[in-house]
Design a protein around this nucleic acid. Structure first.
Lengths: 192, 192
DNA sequence: CGACACATGTAACACGTTACATGATTTG
DNA sequence: CAAATCATGTAACGTGTTACATGTGTCG
């Protein structure tokens, strides 16, 4: 539900043909998100079927598309709608950790620890990427902001993993003595 | 690519039948993520087709499933894999803002502002939800952590939106004088 | 008995994604 | 001329999701 709405949003600026939508989409996202042209055409057909777009008077041999009134309404709502609410997103990292938590605690802690390590590495990469983009001004706002978004998300995920670890350790301490929880890799270690 | 792997992970603890997987999945996620049983069966068939699961000797009239060796390998890798990398996720909020940014600046600022407002409201709701769960201890770790994850994500998104707004305003100031950028709703206003 | 949880499955559809085929036009 | 870009499309597949049909067992 991203390409679909994205195409609608692009068409709100005026009629365009399929290939133009592809290039517009990629330009708008700073070249970070590539789009297979074929998907544009299939998506346009589906949008036509749903009454959101219609054929616009063609200039030359090209098929041009325009928003219908319903389509315009749809985009209008889309701008204000908060994504990822209703239904709440089934996040894969969260699911993974939760499933790990319903297994043996030491395995769970291992998964959390490794996920955090990987995320920290990823974070460092993205920071370098962000710096690179910040220096080369020609890169455009879009690509820059995409990296920033990934950065902030990764940071949030790491914080969440820390939280998970705390909770597991607490729970382990609560059921202390017998079956001692393996506390591998002391939390907040030298990493970072 | 979450239900699929989730089922594999659950089967790693030993053979189960379809309905049991549904309940296990929902229990593991603290009841936050419901799962249509039908999806379990179709997913199991697809996993069988791909050689990740196979029929296990049935006790009574129920069909039991077990992991194959390939399936076990698959789960093993899944635990360590960082989700959302390769390919980078096409996040809808990010796309929305980027598309807004390629339009008129005042509309972009309006979208950013409204998204932030909605997210702040959502955040407040989730904080209350988190508190409620914290007080009622019977709720289980899982549901608790899910809410925390949503909370931290929302905070990260809000921070990112602030960043976007800054950049837009900066860009607007750079091209100062003629065509002045509308600076509606002073950042960091009385909200929150 | 009636409601509810347990249990299995099918059919249909949504969106995203890739690979492939085909041709016109531009440009080095 | 050859390669790249522009331009349109089709076919096939993958996962997620819902709705529906069907039957057993249990418990108040």
């Amino acid at each position: 539900m991203a390409v679909r709405e994205g195409i609608l949003a692009l068409l709100a600026d005026g009629p365009r043909h399929g290939y133009g939508l592809k290039t517009s989409f990629e330009r708008a996202t700073g070249g970070v998100w590539r789009l297979n042209v074929g998907q544009v055409y299939t998506t346009l057909e589906r949008l036509e079927r749903d009454g959101f777009v219609a054929a616009a008077p063609a200039d030359d041999g090209q098929r041009s598309w325009r928003l219908t009134d319903r389509g315009r309404d749809e985009v209008g709502e889309w701008w204000w709608a908060v994504p990822g609410e209703e239904p709440p997103p089934r996040d894969e990292l969260v699911l993974k950790i939760l499933l790990a938590l319903s297994g043996p605690p030491d395995h769970a802690l291992e998964v959390i620890s490794r996920q955090r390590d990987s995320l920290l590495t990823l974070l460092a990469q993205r920071r370098r990427e962000a710096d690179r983009r910040r220096r080369s001004a020609g890169d455009g706002l879009a690509g820059h902001l995409v990296v920033d978004a990934l950065l902030l998300r990764a940071e949030a995920d790491i914080r969440w993993l820390d939280l998970c670890e705390e909770r597991v350790v607490e729970a382990g301490d609560a059921g202390r003595s017998e079956e001692p929880v393996v506390r591998r890799r002391s939390r907040r270690g030298g990493r970072r």
